[in-house]
């Protein structure tokens, strides 16, 4: 390494320490640059939060917090806005998607760590990664053109004929099956988050020490018993962290649900009803909000979504970190 440093002059005085020791000076510049770049993360997060809050101020002062999140009316004509319907849609689609995705992705993780023959392992891994890489708009579009007709024509009428007849539970499947509803949206959402959850679960399963497994096998446990009583308890926190990360994804997903949710600002009682999420409301109405309070209310929704997903992911980070440290 030929160490040659061309003299640099940035207009500082000759007596400056830096000029006498250019090595030190350049290191400082580089360090400052990297520091500034890292600080961008902080600046951006704070910037996003404060600028959204600033834009939302008219709505915050008009509707308050509890009134805003508990009002289900979204009425641009009379300028009454409440987040309850969108919030409800966001939570219901997320919870439903999670309840489909959790068992499937844990199953995938078990298959990949405990059952899969070695030559298949990397192929499976690639496939799951590809599923995660497909853009959400493709999921959404595919949902509208392919999944919605299947749901509306076959799956939903079947559910109505079967579960729909069970008292109480049946009311969840009342209404006309259109395929453009909460159930279809949640299904697409679950397909989207399965790869995230499965790969995190796989990684944490892999962390289980081989010794533990082998000693369980040694006392005659079946494979399933090893998984249930050794692997899963050992990696519980990691899996939980993965679930929460995936939940954060589901909360903030826009395009996969925008096509098939039907944009209805109402608290739906049936899974076959149309609904709206915060993200879909933003995507559809952001460029078209015509009054200032309407616009501010949309920014208010954005603030709520941001805080929700931030807290969720912070919780996930916390869970995963504890796992690694313990």
């Amino acid at each position: 390494m030929g160490i040659y440093f061309p003299p640099i002059s940035l207009g500082f005085g000759k007596s400056n320490m830096a000029n006498r020791n250019p090595i030190d000076y350049r290191d400082k510049i580089f360090k400052t640059m990297t520091f500034a770049a890292a600080m961008m993360v902080l600046v951006l997060i704070a910037g996003i939060f404060f600028s959204l809050v600033k834009q939302a101020v008219p709505a915050i002062s008009k509707f308050g917090f509890f009134r805003f999140i508990s009002t289900a009316t979204w009425d641009p004509v009379h300028e009454v806005f409440g987040a309850a319907a969108s919030l409800y849609g966001t939570i219901v689609t997320t919870v439903l998607a999670m309840s489909i995705a959790i068992p499937v992705s844990i199953g995938i993780a078990i298959f990949m760590t405990e059952l899969c023959p070695n030559f298949l392992k990397s192929a499976m891994g690639t496939a799951i990664e590809l599923l995660a890489a497909i853009p959400s708009i493709i999921y959404g579009m595919w949902g509208l053109f392919t999944l919605a007709p299947i749901m509306g024509d076959t799956v939903e009428p079947f559910l109505q004929q079967t579960i729909g007849r069970v008292p109480y539970l049946g009311s969840l499947f009342s209404g006309t099956p259109l395929g453009i509803d909460i159930l279809t949206a949640s299904t697409i959402l679950s397909i989207m988050i399965i790869p995230f959850m499965a790969s995190i679960a796989r990684d944490t399963f892999n962390l289980t020490p081989q010794v533990l497994r082998e000693s369980a096998y040694g006392i005659g446990a079946t494979r399933w018993e090893v998984i249930r009583n050794v692997v899963i308890p050992y990696s519980r926190k990691g899996v939980l962290g993965g679930i929460v990360i995936a939940m954060g994804r589901a909360l903030g997903e826009t395009m996969a649900v925008a096509f098939v949710l039907g944009n209805k600002h109402e608290i739906a009682h049936s899974l076959l009803d149309a609904s709206a999420t915060i993200t879909v409301t933003l995507a559809n109405e952001f460029t078209e909000a015509d009054s200032d309070i309407y616009m501010a209310s949309l920014f208010y929704l954005a603030v709520i979504l941001f805080v929700m997903s931030f807290l969720t992911l912070a919780a996930a980070k916390f869970l995963l970190k504890e796992k690694i440290e313990s």
Binding site: L44, I48, S51, L52, T254, T279
Partner: peptide
């Protein structure tokens, strides 16, 4: 910052859209 950037990876992209609009 490392933790924050992990969280930022999953900030809903539509929220970033509204931020840049503003």
């Amino acid at each position: 910052i490392s933790t924050l950037s992990d969280i930022m990876v999953s900030v809903p992209s539509i929220v970033i859209g509204t931020f840049v609009y503003a």
